[in-house]
Design a binder for these strands. Structure first.
Lengths: 356, 356
DNA sequence: ACTTACATTGTAAGCACTTTCAGAGACGGT
DNA sequence: ACCGTCTCTGAAAGTGCTTACAATGTAAGT
């Protein structure tokens, strides 16, 4: 970096000690006499000295920074995202905000870096990032990347992932199954639902599969059924979900009691298509979402869904990386954050007026 | 980073060349025979070698990354920000997305780092960031930071700011005056407005003053007037704008034809207060905003405003940093991005139905 | 065949730190 | 006064890369 900034040698000279001593003060190792330490600190302040992260990391020390890699939107996203379609962006942003906040609290810096998930170029941002930080946080879709695996094997990493776990680092996930289970129980207990349908997300997304699995087991648990023709495949997008439900309607009009959707965007599409085809929600059929995006409480019918603690996810991830770094968290640790059922109108519950 | 990853020595050994040659291939400097180059590339691929950014940057080479520093929200922001109040968050996110996208296009990585703007601790994230990247982008509020100044003096930096220009790097700003001018002309030409009013932002905000100055000169240009009692002082917040307009209403009810507001949030407040006091917008009086926040097109009346190209701001910033790095952009350069008038209902134009 | 210029490659000196190892005081016990 | 034991400090060896400089090889010109 910086041309002409002070080095450890300059500090050593001013403080009349060796660079080794300066280094000790910097890493506040024990065994430096108090007045020596003070002298060094004074010199540091005087010279506005800041240790070079590059050199520090080359020689094996800590960088004091942790990285967070999230998927880069391939297309050139518009400046002000439409509110419905950009829930995933908001979700990621919330995680980043949480992570930044917690890192800052703990005296670390948080570098967030968007990585092109398909990319295979050699100067991969993931590598750049990993060599600039002490530990790394990988969000859902980034995890399934060969490069990511290699990196995780080599440095402390925590995966923010819906399923599976990392043999090489820690894993934090949101309690998809608990949320789904609460949702299904609510549907069964309060609304007497028995015949379930499901609109899934991208098959290779761990969150998507976790939610699907949870639906399967919860439905079994409450003694309901989930017929194969009522399991639709989406990709988390509103458009794809609309297409899927339209397709479903063409084939057979005897519908399940409810369509549980793997996220809110898809639920919005499903509601719209159903209504356009005369299946009023929630009078004729129920629909639920997942995520609790901002619009979920604003549309008609308000959407029954499950909230994820995205900010807390970021906080927890930072805590775990640092724990890993300090050896206080064991490799392979898994932490699961609670989700909360948010009951609104689309499951047939009476609709509250929104506060404003 | 990484324990046990291949080094340049390993590659050199496999390819039967010296490390210098490997380095030349890596930085594709000329003067390496074709078959030697191939041999090295093969070795690199075989060993999954990735050069250590730390070592590379230590020895003066490029890191291949650029940094972006933005202000950290001091309070623990909630996961899903309220839609009206968090325009600034969305704005920053859009810039980051633009910068990430462009950096990726150009083969760079973009590290975004939130910095506590008041913070004065020594392990300042700004330093960490700056030593991990080749150049740095500083957003508005980060610029006015002593540390930031010191860093800008020492490494290539571009400032995203309405404020003056950086003597040490480049500056990119949005064309406040062009946007205001187009807006004022529209009001004068299409709606015959002559008697203007203005609700300003924080007096010490460069954007606020730029917008005010632009209003003054544009109004003069179209032969309109801007009476002192119709120039209200806000602080960019909805609440403060409501207070200001209420105050104005108490004193004198002969209002101007329009209130041009320095941002959308204030416009929302002004519209609300005016309507509550019987001055219907746009029938009795017109109101315009600035920024085009997401709600602007969703409320009634839809808000006539000016769009800032936030995504493009990020793109331009990355281009400029890299230009600075490559010596193709001169230090002290200023680039001004165009703004676009968005005509909607609150200026009296017919309200289009939104597409859905 | 013998310069000469030039293309290619190797050698080695940094770059700014951390850390091991060993040496130098200090201090109490004998 | 001497020895063992601490505590503190310095010298020096990495850490992985870039690059100036030197050395070698190669082809063209005489």
């Amino acid at each position: 970096m910086a041309k002409g900034s002070a080095t450890i040698y300059d500090v050593a000279e001013v403080a009349c000690v060796s660079i080794a001593t300066v280094s000790r003060v910097l890493n506040d190792s024990a065994n430096v006499r108090a007045d020596t330490r003070d002298r060094v600190h004074a010199a540091i302040k005087q010279l506005h000295f800041v240790p070079s992260t590059a050199a520090r990391s080359l020689s094996g020390g800590r960088r004091g920074a942790i990285g967070l890699a999230y998927p880069l939107d391939e297309e050139r996203t518009v400046a002000t995202p439409s509110r419905e379609d950009d829930a995933s962006v908001l979700y990621t942003d919330a995680i980043i905000r949480g992570a930044s906040w917690q890192a800052s609290q703990l005296g670390y810096s948080l570098f967030a870096c968007a990585v092109r998930i398909g990319g295979n170029n050699d100067a991969h941002p993931l590598h750049q990032l990993s060599s600039a930080v002490d530990g790394i946080i990988l969000t859902d879709r980034v995890v399934n990347n060969v490069k990511a695996m290699r990196i995780a094997k080599r440095m402390h990493a925590v995966h923010l992932s819906g399923s599976g776990s990392s043999r090489f680092g820690g894993t934090i996930r949101v309690d998809n199954s608990g949320g789904i289970s609460a949702l299904v129980r609510h549907l069964a207990d309060v609304h007497g639902t028995r015949n379930f349908g499901f609109v899934g997300g991208i098959p290779d997304s761990p969150d998507a599969t976790a939610r699907f699995d949870a639906v399967v087991s919860s439905v079994t648990e409450v003694g309901g059924r989930l017929d194969p023709e009522n399991v639709l495949v989406g990709d988390f997008s509103l458009a794809r979900a609309e297409a899927a439900i339209e397709e479903r309607l063409r084939h057979d009009t005897s519908l399940p009691d409810v369509f549980v959707c793997a996220n809110d965007q898809m639920a919005l599409g499903v509601v719209r298509v159903l209504r356009d085809n005369g299946h009023h929600v929630p009078d004729k059929i129920l629909v639920t979402g997942f995520d609790d995006i901002p619009v979920a409480g604003q549309i008609y019918p308000t959407l029954t869904t499950v909230t994820q603690p995205s900010f807390e996810l970021g906080v927890a991830a930072v805590n775990m990386v640092i724990g890993l770094l300090d050896g206080e968290v064991a490799v392979g640790a898994i932490e699961i954050l609670p989700t909360t059922l948010v009951v609104r109108g689309s499951c047939g519950c009476p609709i509250e007026r929104s506060p404003r």
